[in-house]
């Protein structure tokens, strides 16, 4: 246990000394996003007033749109996006919130910061995890420091575990720091620091109407913690994917490029594919469909967007993470280091 702990501390030291600028740059971008989002919100007041104003706007829009087109017929196929239906769903949700004193998620600084960092800015942290993990072995190999590392009295599996744990620790720390700074920004801009136990509501299934039976309420702090926990699963998956690429790569640039591309390109392609093929069942077993798990906690309806259950997301992320890490551990254990 002691060499593993020592190797983890060593890896943390190396990551911080080598990549603190990258971590700082991502934190700065997230702070800028939080500041922009915070400043664009209406000035402090009651959320009820804000919701009532929006309800009035939506009712006006519905009146201008006229009567709904009615059910689809053979001559008129169903529209992909029904504006009227969407407005009516949104209206029903807002009225329900007003009746049950459920503020929108982004009203309280704690949950607003969570929504910004764990949903909007999360791809940046996913890239950070993939990047750091992709460098973990490939850079040691490219700079020939791997010889010294593997000459120490520690097993290769322990080295890999220490590297994976250090990347996860660093990206988690960056994620929590980003969330804390966003919390400070939202709190400073709008007040309400201590409102952490007030309830917020998310949709169990955002692809269908926002009916009361489809709402899940929880305190703002629970929302933030649930978002963090789900995000950590995705960071671990990105970490394992980067390590797997790194196990075989000799060039750090190639390894980082491949890992980041694998994290960014397939999820977008998968959304298009899912819509095109009308949600084939097999896509839900791919890791790329679950890399932004905090998006499960949506507070407004998103019809037409692929949606997964919490169980499926957690199971798929855990299974792929375990599989990729085991594969890289097995390969690294048997690999000759000739450089």
């Amino acid at each position: 246990m002691r060499p593993l702990l020592a190797a983890w501390i060593n890896e943390l030291e190396k990551l911080w000394r080598h990549r603190r600028l990258l971590i700082g740059a991502i934190t700065a971008i997230v702070m800028a996003m939080a500041a922009l989002s915070g400043l664009s919100r209406p000035a402090a007041g009651s959320w009820e007033d804000s919701e009532r104003a929006e309800i009035a706007h939506m009712q006006q829009a519905l009146a201008q749109a006229g009567s709904p087109p009615g059910p689809a017929t053979a001559a008129r196929p169903p529209a992909l996006f029904d504006l009227n239906a969407s407005l009516q769903q949104g209206l029903a949700l807002k009225q329900y919130r007003l009746e049950h004193q459920l503020a929108p998620v982004d009203w309280y600084p704690m949950s607003a910061a969570a929504k910004t960092v764990f949903q909007l800015a999360f791809p940046l942290y996913l890239i950070l995890a993939g990047w750091l993990a992709a460098e973990a072995l490939s850079q040691e190999r490219a700079e020939r420091t791997i010889t010294g590392l593997l000459s120490l009295p520690i097993s290769r599996t322990a080295i890999l575990v220490a590297k994976a744990a250090a990347v996860l620790t660093t990206t988690t720390a960056a994620l929590v720091l980003g969330w804390a700074l966003a919390y400070i920004i939202y709190g400073t801009a709008h007040g309400g620091w201590i409102t952490v136990t007030a309830d917020v509501a998310v949709l169990r299934d955002p692809t269908i109407a926002a009916a009361p039976s489809n709402l899940l309420t929880m305190p703002a702090w629970t929302y933030a913690l649930a978002s963090l926990a789900l995000s950590l699963l995705a960071l671990a998956a990105a970490d394992a994917l980067g390590l797997l690429v790194s196990t075989f790569a000799r060039s750090a640039g190639w390894s980082v490029g491949t890992s980041v591309a694998a994290l960014l390109l397939p999820p977008g392609a998968l959304v298009v594919l899912t819509l095109w093929l009308q949600s084939p069942a097999w896509t839900q077993y791919l890791i790329f469909a679950h890399l932004q798990p905090a998006n499960l906690l949506l507070d407004q309806a998103a019809p037409g967007v692929p949606h997964s259950s919490l169980f499926m997301t957690v199971a798929v992320l855990a299974a792929w993470t375990g599989l990729m890490f085991s594969a890289s551990a097995a390969a690294f254990r048997w690999k000759d280091e000739l450089s």
Binding site: P3, R17, T147, S151, P153, R156
Partner: peptide, 18 residues
């Protein structure tokens, strides 16, 4: 390996460090 490496110190080719 762990047991063997405990008794051994090595300098291999041109040494590389962080």
């Amino acid at each position: 390996h762990v047991l063997a490496a405990r008794s051994m110190g090595a300098v291999v080719e041109t040494p590389a460090f962080y």
